[in-house]
Nucleic acid binder design. Sequence first.
DNA 1: TTCTAATATTCAAACGTTTGAATGTCAAGG
DNA 2: CCTTGACATTCAAACGTTTGAATATTAGAA
Lengths: 369, 369
Amino acid sequence: MGQRRSGHVTLLDVARACGFSVSTVSIVLSEAPLSQNVAASTREQIRTMAQQLGYHPDAYARSLRSRRSQTIAVLAYDLSDPFCIPIVRGIQAGLHPAGYLPLLMDTQTQRRLFDTYLKMVLERRAEGVIVIASWIFEETNLLADIEKNHVPIVILGRDLTGRNVSSVLVDNEAGGMLAMRHLIDLGHRRIGVIRGPQELFDSEPRWVGLQKVAAEAGVRIDPRLVFQLPNLVDPMSGFEGGLNFAKQMLATGLPFTAVLAFDDLTALGAVRGLTDSGVRVPADCSVLGFDDVLPAVVATPGMTTIRQPLKEMGLLAAEGVLKAIQAREKGTRFAAELHTVMPELIVRMSTARPVIRNRKRSAETREEG
Amino acid sequence: MGQRRSGHVTLLDVARACGFSVSTVSIVLSEAPLSQNVAASTREQIRTMAQQLGYHPDAYARSLRSRRSQTIAVLAYDLSDPFCIPIVRGIQAGLHPAGYLPLLMDTQTQRRLFDTYLKMVLERRAEGVIVIASWIFEETNLLADIEKNHVPIVILGRDLTGRNVSSVLVDNEAGGMLAMRHLIDLGHRRIGVIRGPQELFDSEPRWVGLQKVAAEAGVRIDPRLVFQLPNLVDPMSGFEGGLNFAKQMLATGLPFTAVLAFDDLTALGAVRGLTDSGVRVPADCSVLGFDDVLPAVVATPGMTTIRQPLKEMGLLAAEGVLKAIQAREKGTRFAAELHTVMPELIVRMSTARPVIRNRKRSAETREEG
DNA sequence: TTCTAATATTCAAACGTTTGAATGTCAAGG
DNA sequence: CCTTGACATTCAAACGTTTGAATATTAGAA
């Protein structure tokens, strides 16, 4: 009955079925202002008929006509990184009330995919773009192509306000400071550090922050106990880095009572490396992570970590694009905003006061037990 | 220059800029068969001009005209469940070569969101739907509304072939068998079990499988050591369930040397519960999970688990919808297919041979150390 | 010269909406 | 009997693309 060749019920179908024009039906079903002028009986009739036929407006036709896609593209560098998920959740939560749909794209830290998806962003006429950045993100094409088309961008994890791109950041330096302060407060003095990869924006400020606190407290960080992760291509490589570096730390033979890792996966790797070598966490050595992702909270011992308010960051990003879109509609020029959110220390079981004894001895003790 | 009020460069802009008609430009840029008839010089000219202006075809106009959205909706019950991510990855991998884009939707185990997104599926004219099912999934509206519009569906984690919906399943019974066999092979005889929630499709067959193997081996499963998770609303509740049940198991005072958990998060919860009570894993008690999600592999000790080939399942689902779409195009009626994939035992460090001594004693031993 | 057959390009309609302007109806006011 | 205006409905154009049919331009064959 009335099924057109497209297989989808259209306004025309509904119009024919109840004897009104397409215009009237459209006006009623889209609840346009004019619909106040439509007789109540007509409205009722049209609505029930639409319901009956299972009519759903065609978003493509609608968007074509109204030039609004109600879509925000979200370019995540790697969805399999537990870091991304809460952010995406926040974005979703921020977009939903405004009737926008996130178009989620997982670029898998691949330049090629990134470009493919970028093209799609343009083709699908996304009204805005949110980028969850990683080291692979080089600004080149993004700004050239997307901004040329006046699509507002918000970037998470990188400060691009200089290029007039709104940015959401966590205060990494403060995070680094919190981390080091916690360890020092517990009484640790000999601390190994696994720094983040050089190309990652977050790495440096965390390092700066923790150094600052260490210096203030008169704690010297032995450079032989400092390692730096290579560029990560997937979450597991952080884990493996942590694992290997922990073993290398032990191999130095230098005493240390705590490891401060770049992020939670690295910290979990460190825990594995230490445990495998018979060093107990936290009894013999404390480990501290960063981010507060799911694997850190369900591991045992629960990981003490510097929490990033990921969901909140996603929300901020969502609000950011929406604001920019609104501004563009009104013709207002919109100045890029910088949001810096504060990290928070979450104390769990992976850190403890250091025991006043030689690390090596304690390890041996356990091994013979 | 030539920027129209939409803010996007259109075919008309390109046409005007190089003096050809919209048709010619379209034919060249979309590489239609007719483009062979277009002079090489013209083609070149048009292409460079399009490039220069930053032209990108409007997917909406194109889809409207061609009635193809090149989009598959993916309804995931909860993206924050690490279980979903590899599946999504697989789907993405399967769709990409065919030029389809997954429209990822996180229903957050909420009926309301599920319905909202379902409406969007219809409105955005997704050509197919892949559902990653959870207990919240009740077939009612889905089949009524989506199938009415002849949109092919593939469901993961549930057998709906009876309703002519292609389904991808893991052989849960085989998984349950693998799990129990592993524990029995190690020498465990007193085994606690945490079953999955009743409404979840996977729960029962796993339970059947492990019972079968236990019965064959003459191992009796003490019902006082069997617990059942309530319906899960988020991944953490599985963890908490595991934690609490592990403590309850200990509280029974009954001896047991292994816990077989419904999934990895539950198993990780059990590890926490045991460890908190001074029971070491695996020295005093083995723990075995199911799924092989990221938190299970980065935890220490690494979780022995029954791996589901999640990525492969996603791939199968993607291939499933694509096949159905192709069939519909040719007018062929497409019979729903059932894909059952095999789980695999992954041995890590959370399981070991049981020690021949009283569990309680060993726990005390450690506590005094 | 005229016809055929390529080659090269354009016309115009269609996809399903939305919406400003136009049309038609009817009752009250002059 | 004609305005006026409120109400109810429809017309028709537009959004940016694709595509079957049409047209224009050539060159070779009859």
